[in-house]
């Protein structure tokens, strides 16, 4: 979904953080993307290539950490791994699962000169 808009938001966050530190070049960007966040990582990489091309981060290495999904199964009263929002509980096969982790999308850190 909307990976190009997200790429622009990422650039903005990165530019502001770099300028606040009087940095003129960004050499690496680290993102944290949950598997349930609805982001196609390859599309985001493509969007960032385009958006970063003429910015102070044009040579930046892009590191993307993936956060696996996890949910709370109401029937089992325990945390279970969750690959998609519609996945059944691996223990009981039920669908009463509340996602706990994996919906994040964050800019974690940058390396800047």
């Amino acid at each position: 979904m909307h990976e190009m808009a997200l790429a622009e938001s990422i650039l903005e966050v990165v530019e502001q953080a770099a300028r606040a530190q009087q940095c003129t070049r960004v050499t690496a960007i680290r993102l944290e993307i949950g598997t349930l966040a609805g982001i196609e990582v390859s599309a985001l990489r493509f969007g960032l290539e385009v958006v970063l091309a003429h910015s102070l981060a044009r040579e930046a290495r892009l590191d993307i950490d993936t956060l696996e999904g996890e949910g709370w199964c109401m029937r089992c009263s325990q945390n279970v791994p969750l690959k998609a929002l519609y996945d059944p509980c691996p223990s009981c096969g039920g669908y009463q699962i509340q996602p706990l982790r994996g919906t994040e999308m964050r800019v974690k850190e940058i390396l800047a000169l």
């Binding site: 938001s9 990422i10 903005e12 966050v13 953080a17 770099a18 974690k108 940058i110 000169l113």
Partner: peptide
């Protein structure tokens, strides 16, 4: 001139502005 590579922790949600 190239001595200041810094790690800047940002920890910000990408949709934070929205």
């Amino acid at each position: 001139g190239l001595s200041q590579e810094k790690m800047i922790r940002i920890e910000r949600d990408i949709l934070d502005k929205n």
